[in-house]
Design a protein around this nucleic acid. Structure first.
Lengths: 344, 344
DNA sequence: TCGCCCCCTGCAAACGATTGTCATTCCGTT
DNA sequence: AACGGAATGACAATCGTTTGCAGGGGGCGA
C-alpha cells in the first residue's frame, strides 16, 4: 500500500475512519468487532479502509470503556529482608515462561517489581485496574498482603509455598518433601554432618529447611545450629555464608543448598578450601536451573519444572478470569542425581 | 485504618472522593497532583481522605487523557527463521535487566513477544499508544520494519548489530570485533581447523561470523564451507549441528560457537564422541552467561555486559523521551579466557 | 399505493481522569 | 463605601471507545 509512508504515524481515531467510510463511529466499532449487526459488505469495506490507513484501536480507551485490558500482571514482590533480585536465574526463567504462556493466550504482560513493598501495595496494584488478573511470583514475606487481597480478588494466582491459613490460590512445589528428599539422599550415601545453606525468610526456603530437619531427625542425626547457615541468594552472599560454614564446622561432609546458585558458590568455596567435591563434601542444590547440569562436577539437585509450573499457574488464572475458583496445585519435586553427590 | 476491610475492593472514583471531601473533582485532581493552585490545608485533607479510603487513580483514564502511560514496552521480535525462544538465557537475562532498569525509573514494563512478525507489527505496536517508548531486543530479521518505524518514532532503542543503512538507534556489541577476537585467540593457541557454529540470519550472528572469517583469512587459514555449520539456539538444534560438524569434519581442532548455549551443546557432543576438550578440540562461546563460568571445563567466551547494556539502552530511551535524539552505542567485547581453550 | 416489519445505522451516554476558562470570595486600599 | 486584584474552586470539554436505544429506509404483501 502506498499508505505506509513516513508521515503515517499520526494519531488516527475511529471517527476519522468513520468519516473516511462515510458511516458513523458506532458502525466502525461494530464492524471491527465483527458484530452481526453490520452487513458483511459494509464490514469488509470498513476493514479494508481501516487497515489501508493503518488504523489501530486505542487499547487505553477500549480498556477504559470495557473495564478489561487483555493484560496480565506478573508481580515480583522482593521482601525487605531477602535481597533476591529479579536477576536471579530462577526469577528470570519463571518470567520467561510466564511471557511464553501468557502471550500464547493472546494477552499482554505487565511486569511489576515491588521492592520493598509498602503495606497496601497489592491492593493498590489491583485497584489500578491495569490488568485483568495477576500472577505473583514468590511470597517473599508478604503472606499477609496476599491473604488480604486473595479474599476479595479472584483472578490472582501465587507461586510459592502452601501455608496453613492461606486465603489465596497457590501453585508451588512441595518444598518440605523436596528438602526431605535431598537430605535423605545425602544420608543414604553415608553423610552424617549435613549443612543447610539458605535464608529461611521466604516460606519456600523455610519449608525446605523443615524437610531437612525432619530427615535428619528421622535418621537420628543431631543438627547443631552451626550447620544451619542463613545465605542470601546472590553469589557474593552465598560465598560468604559458605565460608562462615567452613570456618565454624570444618568437618562438614555434605551441603544442602537452598538454590543452585548457592550450591555453585559453595562448590567454589569448598574447592578453594582444598575440599574435594564429592569425595570430602557432597553438595546438592535446588531448582535444576540451567547451570546445574553443566557445572563441574555436575550438580545433584531437586528439580522444579518451571515450564509446567507456569502453564498450570496461567491455566488456573484463566479459569479464575472466567469466574471459577481454583484450588491451586502442589507439584512433586524430583531428585536429579549427578556427580556432586556420591557414596562416601 | 478501619477502612481496609474485606469489602473494600469496589471501584472508587475521583468524584466519589470529591463528594466525600465536599469539593469538586477538579480540586481533588489538582490536590493529588500537587498543583500550587490548591491551598495546603485543603490538599492535606483531600489526600488524607483519599488514602483512608484506599483510593487509587485509574491509570487507563489518566493515560487516555494525558496521552502518556508511564510505561515502557520491551519487545522481542522472534524472526520467522530463527526459533530463538524467550527462554534462551540471553533473552531472559536481558529481560531481567530491563525490568530492573526501567522500574528503577518508576516506569512500568509491558512485555511483548512478537512471533512471527506480520508486516506492520512495529507500527501497530507503536500506534496502540500503550507505551511511552519502546525497547526492541534483537533485530532478528526485522531490520526493514525497524527502519520503517525508526524514522518517524523517536522513543525507540534497539539492541542488536550496527548496520550500514540504519535509521534507528542501536545499542550493541561490536560483534565483528568479538568474532575476530575469539578466532584470533583460537589461532594464537595453535588451532588451524576452526569451525563456526551458529545461524547467521540474525545480523548479530552474521557479524560474528564475519569477524571469524576475517581472522581466518588474515592468518592464512582456508575456511571450507564444511566448517561453517548453521546451528539453532536451542540445545537440541545445537547438538544436531555439532554432530553434523563432527561427521563432516572429524579433524576439527577448535569450535567457535555463536552463543554459550551452543558451546555447551558442542562440549557435550564432543565429549560423547571421545574428543577431549580442550586438548583435542578447543571450544569458545559467546555471551559469558551464567553457565559459562561453571561448566566443565569452564568455558572461554566473549563477554557482553548485559547489565551495562540495559542501563545504556534505558538511558538513551529516556533521553529520547525528552525529545533528544541519541546516537546509540557500540560496546567493546571482552575475551574471557577459561579452561576450554589452551595451547595445543 | 399503502402499511408493516426488519435490517441496518446513528445518536448520545458512559468509562475516569485533567485542565483552560471563568465566577466567586475575600482582602486591602483609597 | 466602593473598587481592584489575588486566590480559590466549579464547569465543561476532552481523550477514544463501546453499546442501548431509537429511527430510517427498503422490501414485501395486500
Amino acid at each position: 500500500m502506498a499508505s505506509e509512508t513516513v508521515s503515517e504515524l499520526k494519531r488516527l481515531k475511529m471517527s476519522d475512519i468513520a468519516r473516511l467510510c462515510g458511516v458513523s463511529t458506532s458502525t466502525v466499532s461494530r464492524a471491527l468487532a465483527g458484530s452481526p449487526l453490520i452487513q458483511e459488505a459494509t464490514r469488509e469495506m470498513i476493514i479494508q479502509i481501516a487497515d489501508a490507513n493503518g488504523y489501530v484501536i486505542n487499547p487505553l480507551a477500549r480498556g477504559l470503556r470495557l473495564q478489561r485490558t487483555n493484560t496480565i500482571g506478573v508481580v515480583f514482590p522482593l521482601g525487605a529482608i531477602t535481597a533476591q533480585l529479579i536477576s536471579d536465574p530462577f526469577f528470570q526463567q519463571m518470567l520467561g515462561h510466564m511471557v511464553d504462556e501468557i502471550s500464547l493466550r493472546g494477552y499482554q504482560i505487565l511486569v511489576s517489581k515491588v521492592t520493598p513493598p509498602k503495606p497496601g501495595w497489592l491492593r493498590e496494584l489491583i485497584k489500578a485496574h491495569r490488568t485483568d488478573g495477576m500472577v505473583v511470583i514468590g511470597q517473599s514475606d508478604q503472606h499477609a498482603a496476599l491473604n488480604d487481597a486473595g479474599q476479595v480478588y479472584l483472578p490472582l494466582v501465587v507461586w510459592g509455598a502452601h501455608l496453613p491459613d492461606q486465603q489465596y490460590c497457590v501453585v508451588g512445589l512441595d518444598n518440605v518433601a523436596g528438602g526431605r528428599m535431598a537430605t535423605e539422599h545425602l544420608i543414604a550415601i553415608g553423610r552424617r554432618r549435613i549443612a543447610f545453606l539458605g535464608d529461611p525468610s521466604p516460606p519456600e526456603i523455610e519449608q525446605r529447611r523443615r524437610g531437612y530437619l525432619a530427615a535428619c531427625k528421622a535418621a537420628g542425626l543431631d543438627v547443631t545450629d552451626r550447620l544451619i547457615v542463613p545465605a542470601g541468594f546472590s553469589p557474593q552472599q552465598a560465598e560468604a555464608a559458605a565460608e562462615r560454614l567452613l570456618a565454624e564446622s570444618p568437618d562438614v561432609d555434605a551441603v544442602f543448598a537452598a538454590s543452585d546458585v548457592i550450591a555453585l558458590s559453595a562448590l567454589h568455596v569448598l574447592r578453594r578450601a582444598g575440599k574435594r567435591v564429592p569425595e570430602d563434601v557432597a553438595v546438592i542444590g535446588f531448582d535444576d536451573s540451567a547451570v546445574a547440569a553443566h557445572s563441574n562436577p555436575p550438580l545433584t539437585t531437586v528439580r522444579q519444572d518451571l515450564a509446567q509450573a507456569a502453564r498450570l499457574m496461567v491455566d488456573q488464572l484463566f479459569q479464575r478470569l472466567d469466574g471459577q475458583p481454583t484450588d491451586g496445585v502442589t507439584l512433586a519435586p524430583e531428585l536429579v542425581i549427578r556427580q556432586s553427590t556420591v557414596r562416601s
